[in-house]
Amino acid sequence: MRRSMMGRKKLQLFTKRFYPAGNYTWIVPKGCTEVDVFLVGGGAGGDNESGGGAGYTKTFKKDKTGWRDGDAVMVTPGELINIIVGTGGSSKQSGSYSQFKNSNYRAGGGLSAMDSSGHWAHGGNGGSGGGSEGYVKSNGGSDGSNGTGDVPGIGQGHTTRDFGEPSGKRNAGGGAGKNSYTGYTGGVGGTSDYTEGKGLGSQGGGGYGGGGYSGNRGGDGTVLIRYWAYEE
């Protein structure tokens, strides 16, 4: 634990989330020289019969526990950081990326579900894959997994939890595919009120980067940062 002091103030651990979609600015506080960053791109919209892919996730942190894509981001106190939170795609549209500081720290949006061309509609690829239309069970994927169905979307293959850590909340659930013979659900992801659950509403499989289903909009992405700075 850090014990550095500035006058009577001491370093303290902060966590801050940026949501919903949009452009934000963050001024690096005193005492902060590096930031753990977790990004979720916007989820894709669904087709009429298949679910969109959830937004991809990226993790940049100092601690090597769990999944990470790179080291913590170096910053300077007083620096103005631009942050982009990706927008969920409308029907048949991919989601947009989320970004911290510059394009080196970016998570792409989920890919849209694809129309059928003489075959079942294809679930969208993304952080977790979307389910597809077809004769078999067609759910959206969760926690980086593929969707299900005849032609499911492909997930990123590793966890979508906050900061890539086992204790983190799940994000980026794939959208559900339509199936006339069995039930279908969106992938498990953080809903807009940040509780875990299976989404079947207009946001698909979850608020933070969830894919849409059956023609609906994908969920917005999010950016989560964690850092040490002098207490306010």
Rank of each mutant, 00 (worst) to 15 (best):
S180R: 13
A44W: 01
G52H: 03
D143K: 01
V136C: 01
I84T: 14
I27R: 04
G126V: 11
V28P: 13
N82G: 10
P77Q: 01
G118W: 08
S167M: 03
K58E: 14
P29E: 12
Q12K: 04
T148A: 03
G134I: 04
Q203E: 06
G157Q: 03
G187N: 03
Y230N: 01
V136F: 03
M1Q: 07
Y227E: 08
K61R: 13
G110Y: 02
K9D: 09
I27P: 00
K64V: 08
E165A: 05
P77L: 00
I154M: 13
W26F: 15
L13S: 10
E231Y: 13
G130I: 04
D143G: 00
G212M: 11
K169I: 14
H158G: 02
T185L: 14
Y19P: 02
G199S: 06
S90I: 05
P29N: 09
G205V: 13
G211R: 09
N82I: 04
T33D: 12
G168D: 03
S103W: 00
L13G: 03
S214Q: 14
T148I: 05
F18E: 09
G218R: 01
Q99G: 06
L224Q: 09
G86K: 05
R2A: 11
V85K: 11
R170L: 14
Q93T: 12
N139K: 00
N48C: 02
S4N: 13
G205I: 14
R3Q: 10
R2V: 12
A21T: 11
L11C: 02
V223A: 15
T65G: 09
S94I: 07
G124P: 02
K169H: 13
G55W: 00
K62Y: 01
G173K: 03
G189Q: 14
Q203F: 09
H119V: 10
S94C: 08
S202T: 08
P152I: 02
V223G: 07
K61Q: 09
N146A: 07
D162V: 05
G95N: 06
A54C: 11
W228F: 15
G31V: 01
S128C: 09
G144E: 08
H122C: 06
I225M: 08
I225N: 08
G31D: 05
W67F: 15
G118K: 06
D71P: 05
K9I: 00
M1S: 14
K169A: 12
A54W: 03
Q156G: 02
G212N: 10
Q156D: 01
N146D: 15
G149I: 01
N171W: 13
Q156S: 02
K198W: 12
D36V: 00
W120M: 07
L200C: 04
I154T: 15
V75G: 03
E34S: 06
S90L: 03
G219R: 05
T182D: 05
D150W: 06
